[in-house]
Simulated scan of single mutants.
Amino acid sequence: MVHCQETACTAVLQQPCGHEVCRSHAGCAVQVADLLVWHPDNREAYIIAVAGVEVPISPAIKSASLATLKTWVGGFGRNVKAKQPYILAEEICSLFYPNAKMSAAVASDVAAPIIARIREETRAFPEDLVDLGKDVLGDVAAINLDVEPMVVNSTGQGRVVS
């Protein structure tokens, strides 16, 4: 059982999905009128962006990351009344739930200025994150580290590493 780490919050996270705070205190929670809806924070936007492009990441890791994120987003849906939106962007809603009714997403005309403000504040766009991901993965590959396992010999007086 995981408790929200936000001061004075007593919420228990049933499905924390790697988060240390409840959905109300998460950086991906956006208040729209009287609703708390989900919009990806930088880390989540990176997962979404990488899932849609060809980068040297295991398909199993991509799939597991998206499944975990989908579980987290689904939790926002459980916290709203029926036919109320719980995802800010229609494009992202259709990515996660291709057959879902668009009532799961905030209407575009309401969401657009909110998304623009979020992008301005965070200065991170999924397109930028994809390029950053490719650059980072390329840099790591270029380092060409020797990944041979380290052999440890015990001599009784500590370790000798060869």
Rank of each mutant, 00 (worst) to 15 (best):
V130R: 15
T71N: 10
A107E: 15
V140S: 10
R117P: 00
S63G: 00
A89V: 03
V37D: 04
G133E: 08
V21A: 06
A11K: 09
C93Q: 08
V147G: 08
I143E: 11
L137Y: 07
Y97P: 00
V53I: 10
P16F: 03
V147F: 09
C4G: 06
Q5D: 11
E120H: 10
A104D: 06
A82Q: 15
C17V: 03
D135E: 14
D135T: 14
C4K: 05
H19C: 07
V37N: 04
I118F: 02
P126Q: 06
C93F: 04
M1E: 13
S24G: 06
V130C: 14
G138D: 15
A105R: 03
K81V: 03
E20L: 09
S63A: 05
D34A: 13
V160D: 11
G52M: 09
K83P: 00
V37P: 07
G158Q: 13
E54Y: 06
V12T: 13
V21M: 08
K62L: 02
A60M: 00
K101H: 09
C4Q: 03
C93T: 12
V110M: 05
P126E: 11
Q15L: 08
I47M: 10
A82S: 15
H39N: 11
V110R: 08
G156A: 07
V30K: 03
A64Y: 00
L36M: 10
T122A: 05
S24R: 12
L129I: 14
E54A: 13
D128I: 09
I61T: 04
R23V: 06
E91F: 06
L35Y: 13
W72L: 13
R123L: 04
H39S: 08
G156R: 11
D139G: 09
L35R: 14
V12Y: 01
I48A: 02
V50C: 12
L145G: 08
S65G: 09
P98V: 05
L66Q: 01
V152H: 10
D131E: 15
R23N: 03
K70D: 07
V2F: 07
R23G: 04
P126D: 02
N79K: 06
R159A: 15
